[in-house]
Protein backbone atom coordinates (compact mmCIF):
# COMPACT_ATOMS: atom_id res chain seq x y z
CA UNK A 1 0.00 0.00 0.00
CA UNK A 2 3.01 2.24 0.33
CA UNK A 3 4.49 1.73 -3.09
CA UNK A 4 1.88 1.80 -5.78
CA UNK A 5 4.08 -0.22 -8.07
CA UNK A 6 5.45 -2.79 -5.63
CA UNK A 7 3.82 -6.20 -5.94
CA UNK A 8 1.76 -7.09 -2.93
CA UNK A 9 3.05 -10.22 -1.32
CA UNK A 10 0.75 -10.16 1.67
CA UNK A 11 -2.42 -12.10 2.04
CA UNK A 12 -4.65 -9.14 1.33
CA UNK A 13 -6.88 -9.84 -1.61
CA UNK A 14 -5.99 -7.68 -4.58
CA UNK A 15 -8.54 -5.34 -6.06
CA UNK A 16 -10.50 -6.30 -9.14
CA UNK A 17 -10.67 -4.00 -12.14
CA UNK A 18 -14.21 -3.00 -11.18
CA UNK A 19 -13.18 -2.06 -7.67
CA UNK A 20 -10.28 -0.01 -8.98
CA UNK A 21 -12.60 1.91 -11.30
CA UNK A 22 -15.05 2.41 -8.46
CA UNK A 23 -12.37 3.93 -6.21
CA UNK A 24 -11.01 6.14 -8.98
CA UNK A 25 -14.47 7.22 -10.13
CA UNK A 26 -15.52 8.03 -6.58
CA UNK A 27 -12.50 10.26 -6.09
CA UNK A 28 -13.19 12.01 -9.39
CA UNK A 29 -16.76 12.73 -8.24
CA UNK A 30 -15.68 13.91 -4.76
CA UNK A 31 -17.47 11.02 -3.07
CA UNK A 32 -15.14 8.32 -1.79
CA UNK A 33 -15.99 4.70 -0.95
CA UNK A 34 -16.62 5.46 2.74
CA UNK A 35 -18.74 8.52 1.93
CA UNK A 36 -16.05 11.10 2.58
CA UNK A 37 -15.16 14.06 0.42
CA UNK A 38 -11.67 14.39 -1.01
CA UNK A 39 -10.39 16.61 1.79
CA UNK A 40 -12.16 15.00 4.75
CA UNK A 41 -10.38 12.97 7.41
CA UNK A 42 -11.63 9.80 9.03
CA UNK A 43 -12.44 9.84 12.73
CA UNK A 44 -9.34 10.59 14.80
CA UNK A 45 -9.04 9.49 18.39
CA UNK A 46 -6.12 10.18 20.73
CA UNK A 47 -5.21 8.48 23.97
CA UNK A 48 -2.23 9.70 26.00
CA UNK A 49 -0.14 8.01 28.68
CA UNK A 50 -0.64 4.52 27.26
CA UNK A 51 2.92 3.43 28.15
CA UNK A 52 3.32 4.25 31.85
CA UNK A 53 7.09 3.85 32.12
CA UNK A 54 7.91 6.16 29.20
CA UNK A 55 8.36 9.90 29.68
CA UNK A 56 5.46 10.44 27.33
CA UNK A 57 3.31 8.32 25.08
CA UNK A 58 0.22 8.44 22.93
CA UNK A 59 -1.91 6.16 20.80
CA UNK A 60 -3.60 7.61 17.74
CA UNK A 61 -6.30 5.90 15.73
CA UNK A 62 -7.37 7.24 12.36
CA UNK A 63 -10.06 4.94 11.02
CA UNK A 64 -8.50 1.47 10.86
CA UNK A 65 -4.95 2.78 11.33
CA UNK A 66 -3.61 2.45 14.85
CA UNK A 67 -0.17 3.70 15.94
CA UNK A 68 1.62 4.19 19.26
CA UNK A 69 4.42 6.66 19.94
CA UNK A 70 6.54 6.62 23.07
CA UNK A 71 9.19 9.08 24.15
CA UNK A 72 12.12 8.38 26.43
CA UNK A 73 14.51 11.06 27.63
CA UNK A 74 18.05 10.15 28.62
CA UNK A 75 20.95 12.36 29.62
CA UNK A 76 23.71 12.42 27.04
CA UNK A 77 26.45 14.53 25.58
CA UNK A 78 25.77 17.04 22.81
CA UNK A 79 27.64 16.58 19.57
CA UNK A 80 30.76 18.65 18.96
CA UNK A 81 29.25 20.43 15.98
CA UNK A 82 26.13 21.56 17.87
CA UNK A 83 27.19 22.10 21.48
CA UNK A 84 24.06 24.13 22.23
CA UNK A 85 21.49 21.59 21.07
CA UNK A 86 20.02 18.35 22.34
CA UNK A 87 19.54 15.28 20.19
CA UNK A 88 16.33 13.69 18.97
CA UNK A 89 16.10 10.41 17.13
CA UNK A 90 13.05 8.76 15.65
CA UNK A 91 12.71 5.02 15.15
CA UNK A 92 9.63 3.41 13.70
CA UNK A 93 8.77 -0.25 13.90
CA UNK A 94 6.10 -2.00 11.87
CA UNK A 95 4.50 -4.75 13.92
CA UNK A 96 3.59 -7.90 12.06
CA UNK A 97 0.13 -7.68 13.65
CA UNK A 98 -0.55 -4.87 11.18
CA UNK A 99 0.19 -6.95 8.13
CA UNK A 100 1.55 -10.47 7.61
CA UNK A 101 4.02 -9.03 5.08
CA UNK A 102 5.84 -7.31 7.97
CA UNK A 103 6.85 -10.68 9.41
CA UNK A 104 10.54 -11.18 10.14
CA UNK A 105 12.47 -8.46 8.35
CA UNK A 106 9.60 -7.73 6.00
CA UNK A 107 8.62 -4.52 7.76
CA UNK A 108 12.13 -3.06 7.92
CA UNK A 109 12.02 -1.31 4.58
CA UNK A 110 8.76 0.49 5.27
CA UNK A 111 9.92 1.24 8.81
CA UNK A 112 13.09 2.87 7.52
CA UNK A 113 11.16 4.87 4.95
CA UNK A 114 8.74 6.13 7.60
CA UNK A 115 11.55 6.97 10.05
CA UNK A 116 13.40 9.04 7.44
CA UNK A 117 10.25 10.82 6.32
CA UNK A 118 9.35 11.69 9.91
CA UNK A 119 12.86 12.92 10.65
CA UNK A 120 12.66 15.13 7.59
CA UNK A 121 9.25 16.45 8.51
CA UNK A 122 9.81 17.01 12.24
CA UNK A 123 13.52 17.56 12.78
CA UNK A 124 14.41 19.84 9.88
CA UNK A 125 17.89 19.93 8.38
CA UNK A 126 21.02 18.12 9.52
CA UNK A 127 22.17 21.11 11.56
CA UNK A 128 18.92 21.02 13.48
CA UNK A 129 17.92 24.38 12.04
CA UNK A 130 14.24 24.79 11.32
CA UNK A 131 13.29 21.84 13.48
CA UNK A 132 9.72 21.56 14.65
CA UNK A 133 11.06 20.45 18.02
CA UNK A 134 13.12 23.19 19.68
CA UNK A 135 16.43 21.39 20.16
CA UNK A 136 18.03 24.17 22.20
CA UNK A 137 15.43 23.62 24.95
CA UNK A 138 16.97 20.18 25.50
CA UNK A 139 20.33 21.51 26.60
CA UNK A 140 21.29 21.22 30.27
CA UNK A 141 24.92 22.42 30.31
CA UNK A 142 26.18 23.78 27.03
CA UNK A 143 28.69 21.48 25.38
CA UNK A 144 28.52 19.01 28.29
CA UNK A 145 25.09 17.62 29.05
CA UNK A 146 21.89 17.52 27.07
CA UNK A 147 18.75 15.47 26.88
CA UNK A 148 18.57 12.79 24.21
CA UNK A 149 15.00 12.18 23.15
CA UNK A 150 14.30 8.76 21.76
CA UNK A 151 11.02 8.67 19.89
CA UNK A 152 9.77 5.16 19.18
CA UNK A 153 6.79 4.59 16.96
CA UNK A 154 4.95 1.33 16.50
CA UNK A 155 2.43 0.59 13.77
CA UNK A 156 -0.11 -1.74 15.36
CA UNK A 157 -2.73 -1.74 12.64
CA UNK A 158 -2.42 -0.26 9.19
CA UNK A 159 -5.14 1.04 6.94
CA UNK A 160 -3.35 3.76 5.05
CA UNK A 161 -2.03 7.21 5.94
CA UNK A 162 0.59 5.88 8.36
CA UNK A 163 2.82 8.94 8.14
CA UNK A 164 0.12 11.42 9.19
CA UNK A 165 -0.95 9.11 12.01
CA UNK A 166 2.62 8.72 13.28
CA UNK A 167 3.17 12.48 13.06
CA UNK A 168 0.02 13.07 15.09
CA UNK A 169 1.00 10.40 17.63
CA UNK A 170 4.45 11.93 18.10
CA UNK A 171 2.89 15.36 18.55
CA UNK A 172 0.48 14.01 21.14
CA UNK A 173 3.25 12.07 22.91
CA UNK A 174 5.41 15.22 23.08
CA UNK A 175 2.50 17.08 24.69
CA UNK A 176 2.31 14.25 27.22
CA UNK A 177 6.07 14.27 27.91
CA UNK A 178 7.47 15.42 31.23
CA UNK A 179 11.23 15.91 31.37
CA UNK A 180 12.72 15.73 34.87
CA UNK A 181 14.15 18.94 36.27
CA UNK A 182 17.93 18.76 36.51
CA UNK A 183 20.03 20.48 39.16
CA UNK A 184 23.61 21.07 38.13
CA UNK A 185 26.16 21.15 40.91
CA UNK A 186 27.75 24.59 40.94
CA UNK A 187 31.46 25.27 41.10
CA UNK A 188 32.87 22.69 38.74
CA UNK A 189 35.66 23.86 36.50
CA UNK A 190 35.25 24.13 32.78
CA UNK A 191 36.89 20.93 31.62
CA UNK A 192 35.28 18.63 34.15
CA UNK A 193 32.02 16.81 33.55
CA UNK A 194 29.59 18.54 35.93
CA UNK A 195 27.60 16.52 38.41
CA UNK A 196 23.87 16.55 38.03
CA UNK A 197 20.94 15.70 40.20
CA UNK A 198 17.89 14.47 38.34
CA UNK A 199 14.65 15.18 40.14
CA UNK A 200 12.09 12.39 40.16
CA UNK A 201 9.28 14.62 41.34
CA UNK A 202 9.51 17.77 39.31
CA UNK A 203 8.86 17.51 35.60
CA UNK A 204 9.05 20.21 33.00
CA UNK A 205 6.49 20.28 30.26
CA UNK A 206 7.87 20.33 26.80
CA UNK A 207 7.08 23.28 24.55
CA UNK A 208 5.10 21.68 21.74
CA UNK A 209 3.57 24.77 20.15
CA UNK A 210 6.04 24.57 17.27
CA UNK A 211 5.57 20.87 16.49
CA UNK A 212 4.10 20.55 13.01
CA UNK A 213 1.46 18.15 11.75
CA UNK A 214 1.94 16.12 8.61
CA UNK A 215 -0.59 16.23 5.80
CA UNK A 216 -0.18 13.68 3.04
CA UNK A 217 -1.91 14.45 -0.22
CA UNK A 218 -2.29 11.34 -2.33
CA UNK A 219 -2.83 11.84 -6.03
CA UNK A 220 -5.27 9.42 -7.62
CA UNK A 221 -6.13 10.14 -11.24
CA UNK A 222 -6.36 13.89 -11.72
CA UNK A 223 -7.28 14.72 -8.14
CA UNK A 224 -5.63 14.45 -4.76
CA UNK A 225 -7.09 13.32 -1.49
CA UNK A 226 -6.15 13.48 2.21
CA UNK A 227 -6.14 10.51 4.60
CA UNK A 228 -6.14 7.76 1.99
CA UNK A 229 -7.09 4.23 3.04
CA UNK A 230 -4.82 1.38 1.96
CA UNK A 231 -7.13 0.57 -0.96
CA UNK A 232 -6.92 4.16 -2.14
CA UNK A 233 -3.15 4.21 -1.63
CA UNK A 234 -2.87 1.20 -3.92
CA UNK A 235 -4.33 3.38 -6.71
CA UNK A 236 -2.09 6.38 -6.17
CA UNK A 237 0.27 7.76 -8.78
CA UNK A 238 2.25 9.86 -6.32
CA UNK A 239 1.93 11.36 -2.88
CA UNK A 240 3.34 14.47 -1.25
CA UNK A 241 3.73 14.69 2.53
CA UNK A 242 3.95 18.23 3.81
CA UNK A 243 4.53 19.14 7.44
CA UNK A 244 2.99 22.44 8.47
CA UNK A 245 3.18 24.20 11.82
CA UNK A 246 0.61 26.36 13.55
CA UNK A 247 1.79 29.51 11.79
CA UNK A 248 1.17 27.84 8.46
CA UNK A 249 4.88 27.53 7.68
CA UNK A 250 6.16 24.50 5.81
CA UNK A 251 8.61 22.53 7.98
CA UNK A 252 9.44 19.65 5.69
CA UNK A 253 8.31 17.82 2.62
CA UNK A 254 8.63 14.42 0.97
CA UNK A 255 7.34 13.17 -2.34
CA UNK A 256 6.79 9.48 -2.93
CA UNK A 257 5.57 7.41 -5.83
CA UNK A 258 7.04 6.99 -9.26
CA UNK A 259 4.99 9.35 -11.37
CA UNK A 260 6.23 12.89 -11.93
CA UNK A 261 4.23 15.91 -10.83
CA UNK A 262 3.81 19.24 -12.50
CA UNK A 263 5.51 21.95 -10.37
CA UNK A 264 2.35 24.08 -10.43
CA UNK A 265 0.38 21.17 -8.98
CA UNK A 266 2.89 20.89 -6.13
CA UNK A 267 2.42 24.57 -5.28
CA UNK A 268 -1.31 24.03 -5.43
CA UNK A 269 -0.99 21.02 -3.11
CA UNK A 270 1.02 23.09 -0.63
CA UNK A 271 -1.68 25.72 -0.35
CA UNK A 272 -4.31 23.00 0.12
CA UNK A 273 -2.13 21.37 2.78
CA UNK A 274 -1.83 24.69 4.63
CA UNK A 275 -5.59 25.02 4.64
CA UNK A 276 -6.20 21.41 5.74
CA UNK A 277 -3.47 21.49 8.39
CA UNK A 278 -5.13 24.40 10.20
CA UNK A 279 -8.23 22.26 10.72
CA UNK A 280 -6.16 19.21 11.61
CA UNK A 281 -4.11 21.10 14.21
CA UNK A 282 -7.28 22.39 15.88
CA UNK A 283 -8.85 18.93 15.83
CA UNK A 284 -5.71 17.31 17.25
CA UNK A 285 -5.28 19.97 19.93
CA UNK A 286 -8.80 19.45 21.22
CA UNK A 287 -8.37 15.64 21.12
CA UNK A 288 -5.05 15.88 22.97
CA UNK A 289 -6.51 18.24 25.56
CA UNK A 290 -9.44 15.93 26.25
CA UNK A 291 -7.13 12.88 26.37
CA UNK A 292 -4.89 14.63 28.89
CA UNK A 293 -7.89 15.66 30.96
CA UNK A 294 -9.18 12.08 30.94
CA UNK A 295 -5.80 10.73 31.99
CA UNK A 296 -5.69 13.01 35.01
CA UNK A 297 -9.08 11.96 36.34
Amino acid sequence: MWHASAPRTSGMVGLSLGEKHFIQGGIAHDLRCDGRKRLTYRRISVETGVIPHANGSAQVRIGGTDVIASIKAELGKPSLLQPDKGKVSIYIDCSSTAEPAFEGRGGNELAAELSIALQRCLLGGKSGAGAGIDLSSLIVVEGKICWDLYIDGLVVSSDGNLLDALGAAIKAALCNTGIPRVQVAAGTSNDEQPEVDVSDEEFLQFDTSGVPVIVTLTKVGRHYIVDATSEEESQMSSAVSISVNRQGHICGMTKRGGVGLDPSIILDMISVAQHVSAQLINKLDSEIASAEAEEET
Binding site: G11, M12, P52, G63, G64, D66, S95, S96, T97, A98, E99, P100, V156, S157, S158, D159, S230
Partner: peptide, 23 residues
Protein backbone atom coordinates in the same frame (compact mmCIF):
# COMPACT_ATOMS: atom_id res chain seq x y z
CA UNK B 1 -8.02 -4.30 18.06
CA UNK B 2 -6.65 -4.68 14.54
CA UNK B 3 -9.21 -3.87 11.88
CA UNK B 4 -7.52 -5.62 8.96
CA UNK B 5 -6.84 -8.91 10.73
CA UNK B 6 -9.24 -11.85 10.61
CA UNK B 7 -9.19 -12.00 14.38
CA UNK B 8 -7.47 -9.86 16.99
CA UNK B 9 -7.45 -9.14 20.70
CA UNK B 10 -5.72 -7.14 23.40
CA UNK B 11 -4.99 -8.87 26.68
CA UNK B 12 -3.76 -7.12 29.82
CA UNK B 13 -2.58 -8.70 33.07
CA UNK B 14 -1.73 -5.83 35.38
CA UNK B 15 0.91 -3.80 33.57
CA UNK B 16 1.61 -6.51 31.00
CA UNK B 17 -0.16 -5.67 27.77
CA UNK B 18 -0.09 -7.66 24.53
CA UNK B 19 -1.86 -7.54 21.18
CA UNK B 20 -2.51 -10.67 19.14
CA UNK B 21 -3.63 -10.74 15.52
CA UNK B 22 -4.63 -13.81 13.53
CA UNK B 23 -4.53 -13.95 9.75
Amino acid sequence: AVSKADGSAIFEMGNTKVIAAVY
